[in-house]
């Protein structure tokens, strides 16, 4: 008998991105409302597929992150409007998630500029929550029901992302990825709208999850069920789409260029696209000799502003093999 599974779903709820997503110019416009109805069907499916399955939903709003629902904290079960035609757990999930999202969206301030999305907060909260449910501890007296270790769920995180990468959140996202690796948590990513995000691609790759770019967004539910429903144990048997090529190239700290050969400070590991005399992060001065040697090893005619060598792995090998260090 396979273990129950836990999903922490992280919803990227950036109002502006969802507005853009619902515009009719898109090939497959998807509004937040229809997204939620498909998502709730997926959540209900997860709960129904095994009785012990647990669920938590986190929302990443502009500049903040909120836990919208968790199945282990059945706080304030409002039983007044019970729909007798609906399975009760479904109703609890649906109503709580929708009302909490409405509340949070209402409370957003109406300034014209949207703050960056709180994805890192949601990710770290999901990790803390998973840490809590897989290590039920006795240190809190009010705490958890004592659980049999065999019934502890297999945890994973599903990120439904619509916002582009935020370069300032690179380090915290990487830290979250490494802690997910430590906890053996799989991070699945479903990119619902917008361009590919490099950070989440790496998150899915490093934790063994699947990254799915939604081409046909009217088929969201189908994608969710086919590729994010099977538990990690089951995925060994089922072929779940994975990425084929992952870009491990890094962005330099100075110009945010993507570089394939970088110059790295030995003290703080900051990456630069050209030899610099002083590290901008830790203020370390580098010896002149090294600079001369590195500059000499760079092929002539390659200006420091060469970082526009994006993608196209065939072109960047302009540095001749005649210049070994």
């Amino acid at each position: 008998m396979d273990k129950p599974s836990h999903i922490s779903v992280i919803l990227d709820l950036s109002p502006s991105q969802w507005h853009l997503s619902s515009l009719p110019e898109n090939p497959h416009p998807l509004s937040l409302r229809s997204f939620l109805s498909q998502l709730l069907a997926f959540l209900n499916l997860h709960i129904a597929s095994k009785h012990e399955n647990t669920l938590a939903v986190f929302g990443a709003f502009p500049s903040k992150s909120v836990m919208l629902y968790s199945s282990t904290d059945p706080e304030a079960d409002n039983t007044e409007n019970v729909n007798p035609n609906m399975y009760h757990p479904f109703q609890v999930v649906d109503s709580r998630v929708v009302t909490r999202i409405e509340e949070e969206l209402e409370s957003l301030d109406q300034s014209e500029e949207e703050a960056p999305i709180g994805l890192v907060g949601a990710l770290t909260k999901a990790l803390c929550y998973i840490n809590r449910i897989i290590h039920p501890s006795a240190s809190q007296s009010s705490g958890t029901t004592s659980e049999d270790p065999t019934t502890l769920p297999d945890p994973r995180i599903l990120v439904l992302s619509v916002s582009p990468d935020l370069s300032t959140s690179y380090i915290p996202i990487m830290n979250s990825i490494f802690s997910a690796q430590k906890l053996k948590v799989v991070i699945d990513v479903c990119k619902v709208y917008g361009p590919d995000t490099v950070f989440l691609e790496q998150a899915a790759h490093l934790t063994g999850g699947s990254y799915i770019y939604l081409d046909r967004r009217d088929a969201l539910l189908q994608h969710l069920i086919m590729s994010h429903m099977p538990s990690p144990a089951l995925r060994k048997l089922m072929t779940v789409p994975t990425q084929d090529k992952i870009d491990f190239r890094a962005a330099c700290f100075c110009h945010k260029n993507i570089v394939d050969i970088g110059f790295v400070c030995s003290v703080c590991l900051s990456i630069f696209c050209a030899p610099v005399p002083v590290c901008s992060t830790c203020r370390t001065k580098f010896p002149i000799k090294t600079l001369q040697r590195l500059n000499a090893s760079r092929p002539p005619g390659l200006k420091p502003a060469n970082g526009a060598l994006k993608t196209a792995p065939s072109t960047p090998h302009t540095r001749g093999p005649s210049t070994p260090r």
Binding site: I246, F248, F263, V264, C265, T284, K285, L291, L294, R325
Partner: peptide, 18 residues
């Protein structure tokens, strides 16, 4: 010692299984 140094490093492209 504090003799920090600038190192040249390459960031590879990962080839898929296929």
């Amino acid at each position: 010692n504090l003799a920090a140094d600038l190192m040249m490093m390459g960031f590879p492209v990962r080839l898929p299984d296929t």
